[in-house]
Design a protein around this nucleic acid. Structure first.
Lengths: 195, 195
DNA sequence: AAAAAAAGATGAACTATCTTATGAAATATA
DNA sequence: TATATTTCATAAGATAGTTCATCTTTTTTT
């Protein structure tokens, strides 16, 4: 069996669960191997699961009319990922979610999550806290997009998520930061020259 | 006493509460009059409250280094507003939240909300649902910003929120849509000419 | 109702970022 | 390990969106 300690720690950092609730929570997740380039969510299909990453890296993105892709979310170890509009409303996804590396994830399906939340106040609280943190995280991203120029967004991202930066293809990071890959390439090079 | 039926309906649309919980919920809110141009949240201070708007309109915004302001959120009747990073983490706000009209709001403070959520599984569920919806809403805004150009963002906003559009100063809408007031003015005028 | 202040329109000059194209480097695959 | 594929770098030309400055209209204040 795989080591799920990081998951336990992640959850415990949000709320202290009773042994029973923790047991039920863990039991609700299924351990899944996802190989590189494999999709776990695709547009048109309902996102049945949300994923906790034990090992590996994922990218969620949409493709616009012109065929350009735009990264909505990254996730490496100890992050969660899904297409939340699809998952929460159980409506067709608009995003692709793909593994960037051979990965190992804990998967929970929407129905099971609902039962879990209904079964225990404590577990409901856990998911409430997770949702609140997501809201706050997205709000910060919106503010960054509104107030910063391309170079500032890049610099801030690297500072905040150095580990993520190293494992991402540059074109994916560029599309997350709302700029072209060419422009990100230029920014990085200008930075090096300045030094 | 003011009519709070819209609030009851808003909550009931998210979850069916027991009479007792509904009573406790309502009791936790305080009815407040806010006059036009009055601030309910300011940078540097902790956002102690979140607000439900019974009547009126609000705008949340940040001011960047250059002195330009950027609208993070609007709210009219039956919307919630706060600086969520500040409210959730009880850390200093970065946003201003100001009344655009003479308004009437229901206000709940952070401590009371925590007690409420702790006191009842059902109420915890309510706030979990609210947080999930906020997450999904913000995700859609991020996607719109990544995938659409200025005119498309404007057109979509007007379609989605016609009532909000009518009550907002144009400069505030421009800054929400991540463009200058001059450019929004041009877009609107180009649209009129096309017809 | 007049005066002052704020909001919106307009246009010309400017610039941050994009587009297109091409070659080099790195990575994946046969 | 050779070949194919993907990613990254670079640069010139194009453009969506900004900046600045002025004028008109609307709203607020006196």
């Amino acid at each position: 069996m795989e080591n799920i300690d990081p998951f336990i720690e992640n959850v415990s950092g949000k709320i202290k669960l009773s042994p029973e609730n923790l047991g039920n929570l863990v039991a609700a997740f299924k351990l899944i191997k996802v190989s590189k380039k494999q999709f776990v969510i695709q547009p048109g299909f309902i996102a049945k699961y949300r994923f906790y990453i034990l090992k590996g890296a994922f990218r969620a993105y949409v493709i616009d009319e012109k065929g350009n892709d735009h990264t909505i979310q990254f996730a490496i170890e100890d992050w969660w990922i899904s297409d939340y509009n699809s998952y929460i409303y159980q409506s067709p996804a608009t995003q692709f979610v793909v593994a960037l590396e051979d990965s190992l994830v804990l998967q929970i399906d929407h129905d099971t999550e609902q039962q879990l939340k209904a079964s225990s106040h404590e577990l409901e609280t856990l998911f409430r806290i997770m949702a609140e943190k997501s809201t706050a995280f997205y709000a910060r991203r919106i503010i960054a997009n509104l107030t910063q120029n391309a170079e500032q967004r890049y610099t801030e991202f690297v500072e905040k998520f150095p580990k993520v930066t190293q494992r991402l293809p540059q074109y994916a990071l560029a599309s997350y930061l709302n700029m072209t890959r060419e422009f990100l390439s230029k920014i990085r090079n200008d930075k090096v020259r300045k030094k």
